[in-house]
Computed example of a mutant assay.
Amino acid sequence: MKNLVDKLIPHESRPERVGPRVTALRETMAMSKAQLADSIGLDRSTLTKIEKGAMGLDIQRGEAIAHMYGFGLDFIYRGDLSDVPDKYRDRLLIEMVTYNAR
């Protein structure tokens, strides 16, 4: 039963899915890891773990990103591109494709 549920419900909010989106939004805004980490109250090593997908992004930090930079929680946790500010959408797609090509 668990395998059937896993197939039917996409796990878009898993750390390995959220991490690349955080990296892409940071790079889209031309921010260093230090700048993003400091702005949302994380230490740099924690942000590195999140971006690598080794650690989840807690909702408090996700909300901070959404509030400060305009990227909605639906993008951060589900990958919904309609929840990305228009001015960043094209660049974000390029960053995501570049990340996936690595």
Score class of each variant (00 low, 15 high):
Leu36Lys: 08
Ile76Ser: 05
Thr28His: 01
Tyr88Gln: 03
Pro15Asn: 08
Ile59Trp: 03
Ile50Leu: 04
Leu92Ser: 10
Gly56Met: 05
Asp58Ala: 10
Gly56Val: 06
Leu42Ala: 09
Ile9Ala: 04
Pro10His: 08
Ile76Tyr: 10
Arg14Phe: 01
Gly53Gln: 10
Gly79Glu: 06
Glu12Leu: 11
Val18Thr: 10
Val84Lys: 02
Glu27Lys: 15
Glu16Gly: 09
Ser13Tyr: 08
Thr98His: 12
Thr28Ser: 10
Ser45Gln: 12
Asp86Gly: 05
Gly53Lys: 12
Glu51Met: 06
Leu8Phe: 04
Asp38Trp: 06
Asp86Gln: 13
Arg17Trp: 00
Arg89Gly: 00
Val18Asn: 13
Val84Pro: 05
Lys2Tyr: 05
Leu8Asn: 07
Leu93Pro: 00
Met96Arg: 13
Ala37Tyr: 00
Ser39Asn: 09
Ser13Gly: 06
Gly56Asn: 10
Gly53Asn: 11
Leu42Glu: 06
Met96Ala: 12
His11Arg: 15
Pro85Lys: 03
Ser32Phe: 01
Thr48Pro: 02
Ala64His: 01
Ala34Glu: 10
Ala66Phe: 01
Leu8His: 07
Leu92Trp: 03
Thr46Ile: 09
Arg14Tyr: 02
Val84Trp: 00
Pro20Gly: 01
Gly70Gln: 05
Met1Ala: 13
Val18Ser: 11
Met55Asp: 10
Pro15Arg: 05
Asp90Phe: 04
Arg44Phe: 02
Asp83Glu: 08
Arg44Asp: 12
Gln35Trp: 01
Arg17Pro: 01
Gly41Arg: 04
Tyr69Thr: 04
Ala37Thr: 09
Tyr88Lys: 02
Asp86Tyr: 04
Ala66Asp: 09
Arg44Pro: 04
Glu95Ile: 00
Ala66Gln: 12
Ser32Ala: 09
Ala37Gly: 10
Thr46Met: 12
Thr98Asp: 13
Leu57Met: 12
Gly53Ala: 10
Tyr69Gln: 03
Ala24His: 00
Arg89His: 05
Leu25Asp: 04
Gly19Lys: 04
Arg91Cys: 13
Val22Cys: 08
Tyr77Pro: 13
Pro20Ala: 00
Gly79Asn: 06
Ala101Lys: 15
Ile65Cys: 04
Tyr77Asp: 11
Ile40Glu: 00
Gly41His: 08
Ser13Leu: 05
Gln60Arg: 11
Leu92Tyr: 05
Lys33Gly: 15
Asp58Asn: 14
Ile59Thr: 15
Thr28Phe: 01
Asp6Pro: 01
Tyr69Glu: 06
Val22Ala: 12
Asp43Leu: 03
Glu95Ala: 00
Lys87Tyr: 03
Asp6Val: 07
Ala64Met: 14
Arg61Leu: 03
Arg89Tyr: 02
Ile59Asp: 13
Pro85Phe: 00
Asp86Met: 07
Ile59Asn: 13
Ser45Glu: 13
Glu51Lys: 09
Gly19Thr: 04
Met96Ser: 14
Asp6Tyr: 08
Gln35Cys: 06
Lys33His: 08
Thr48Tyr: 03
Ala30Ser: 15
Ile50Lys: 10
Asn3Val: 07
Arg21Asn: 04
Arg17Thr: 05
Glu12Trp: 06
Gln60His: 09
Val84Asn: 02
